[in-house]
Design a protein around this nucleic acid. Sequence first.
DNA 1: TGAAAACTCTATTAAATTAGTAGGGTAATA
DNA 2: TATTACCCTACTAATTTAATAGAGTTTTCA
Lengths: 136, 136
Amino acid sequence: MLSKKTKYGLKALSYLAAQPDKKPIQISEIAEKENISQKFLESILLSLRKTGFLGSKKGKGGGYYLLRSPEDISMTDVMRVLEGPIAMVPCVSLNFYETCDDCPDENTCSVHKLMLQVRDSALDVYRNNTLKDIIS
Amino acid sequence: MLSKKTKYGLKALSYLAAQPDKKPIQISEIAEKENISQKFLESILLSLRKTGFLGSKKGKGGGYYLLRSPEDISMTDVMRVLEGPIAMVPCVSLNFYETCDDCPDENTCSVHKLMLQVRDSALDVYRNNTLKDIIS
DNA sequence: TGAAAACTCTATTAAATTAGTAGGGTAATA
DNA sequence: TATTACCCTACTAATTTAATAGAGTTTTCA
């Protein structure tokens, strides 16, 4: 299941991408328009800023804004930051790989085999979608 | 993330599918060979029996066995029983559909748009894999 | 220059889910 | 008829999620 954090993060990014210009948008505006708890959204936007997706401006007239164009923001990167691993098991994860302690051999593991395909198909989708693709 | 229930369920089904004949296999044997807590596995096998994947035989020489051939068991059905919805959000689920209470319009929702593709790609994988496919 | 606006950070918590554990009960077979 | 093995209910510890609270800091503009 997609976490609320990811869902809200995607909505916030989409909201910013849909703006006509690059002016900073206040957290309160995004929270209200997208029906998100403001405090929760605060922490999500903060993590998107720390990972290079958003910039922020303090003080009056401040807020958050996209650092790159929507067509340059891949869903692969966004999902990894917000949701974590794309793989459903660590033993097929590209960026968060871990061995299964209960599994003697990955190569003969049926779960491994299936989840590898699921990961690849999900990656395909994320790689073929930028922020621009999902807002139009 | 894939739940342990699903992981163990898949492993148990694979173990049964890999048997040379259709003799009942005891829970204790599967639990030991696949490194699964026996009591936990009990509850998983029970749910697979109730949903028509497994049969069981009581008494001495009893155990669990597949009711259908591995090539007739689709991963789509197995995943829905073990893991639940294949979709990552209820608003794109075929079998467990629910509206989002925070979302005014599905058709313009970027999350909806992305997750629809992810669901379809996952479904493709599950539909193209039977139990036989993942054990060989 | 100072007050308001807006971001930043830490800590806490309530609810839900997961992954088991415990223990008794029931049915079938040799 | 005793043993084997499935069946069922209830409980619980750990983890994660989704906030909530509240204080603090920085920037801007009048």
